[in-house]
Design a protein around this nucleic acid. Structure first.
Lengths: 210, 210
DNA sequence: AGGCTAGTGACAGCCACTGACAATTGACAA
DNA sequence: TTGTCAATTGTCAGTGGCTGTCACTAGCCT
């Protein structure tokens, strides 16, 4: 790796970390691109040469995570039921995420940023859009596993939509609570996914939720 | 109604219609607030006195629609199953929407704008966020119907998430196709909702989708 | 060593949006 | 009717995200 390359890499990482640190402490809207650039002592123009926009920095880790989920789902044994495959793919990817990112961004920092994402309208909206795109990818993979045509058969998209919905509900709850750890997220997710059956079956009034 | 009030109303409607017309023909990003203001011959500042932002104009009709859905769900007989109540509330609200809006915005214009919403990243993201907020409201109503505590029992949010997911899938399909009518939307929605059961049950490979 | 080029900074400009202040216009009472 | 008050509007200036342009500098390669 060149000196030039290394320098670029360092600038990029510095910008990223500075941005996330500022978002986590001061808030997203309260952080200007000039602030970020100043923290790394480069011009604002340089920031925009590394990132397409302020938003992109906030979604650096989520972006990596999405890639991991897709990969994980692709290697799931095809005889698993769709919901089961999705569940395992997500849980697996969380096992990998720390080591995949830690070098560049301390995952603890990301967890703080995640809270900012959930509580900042502009970021939350962007988050949902990214999720929608991810779900489209997942639906295609599921369809392929099952030997179906995504555009002809609604079922892959429906299952993924249900799964994504549950994930989003747990994300909200998790980020609103104070158990900000991967373990906590794991816990919440599994219990919520276990509720899918009960939620869709039977009469709620005759059965208690755990 | 005052002359003053009437004048305000007229300006507001004119801005709204001009904005939607421009979005539908030229595209959202290609339309500046100055364009909209100029089309109505008021200053840009006046536009911002009527609307919090460019985005707000694009979501005028959806906003009304959301209100109708909430209302419709609230008056559903409480002995209906949650998914059934949601389905009927939505279909009912679509019966009402035309007459509720037509005076201000031709519903045909809105359908064209809706396509813009789905195909413009910034608007699509905003749309998803609005949907998330609506789903939260619906979940609370469902919980109340069933005599449950939304924050203690996951099931209301899960059902609503599933329902919302299906709706969003159909919205995408509908806006991507060329049957841009309320009837077409209705049709798609009912058949997709009918697929929820099959999608979650049984083995996909042994059963065909209609 | 010297030419080449990627990376950068400085500057100008667009667009969404906001605050402040002055001018205008409708409302309402004397 | 007229004068006063309050609501509406336009103008101006400024902030922040983002982009194009251009000259300059620092690392690369022969």
């Amino acid at each position: 790796m060149n000196l030039r390359e290394r320098k670029k890499q360092r600038t990029r990482d510095a910008l990223l970390r500075a941005a996330l640190e500022l978002f986590a402490t001061r808030g997203y809207d309260e952080t200007t691109v000039d602030d970020i650039a100043a923290a790394v002592d480069v011009s604002q123009r340089t920031f925009f040469r590394y990132f397409a926009g302020k938003e992109e920095t906030a979604f650096f880790v989520p972006r990596l995570a999405e890639g991991l989920v897709v990969q994980a789902l692709q290697v799931r044994p095809p005889d698993e039921a769709p919901l089961e495959a999705l569940r395992r793919a997500v849980l697996e990817s969380w096992d990998t995420i720390s080591e995949a990112v830690e070098e560049i961004v301390p995952i603890d920092l990301h967890l703080r940023v995640y809270r900012v994402i959930e509580s900042t309208p502009a970021l939350f909206a962007a988050h949902l859009r990214r999720s929608a795109e991810l779900e489209e990818q997942l639906a295609r993979i599921i369809a392929e596993r099952e030997g179906l045509d995504v555009d002809a058969d609604p079922r892959p998209r429906i299952v993924v939509a249900l799964f994504g919905g549950v994930i989003r509900v747990t994300e909200r709850l998790w980020s609103a609570g104070d158990e900000l750890s991967l373990a906590g997220m794991r816990q919440l997710t599994t219990t919520y996914l276990d509720q899918v059956g009960p939620a869709l079956a039977g009469n709620w009034r005759t059965e208690q939720s755990p």
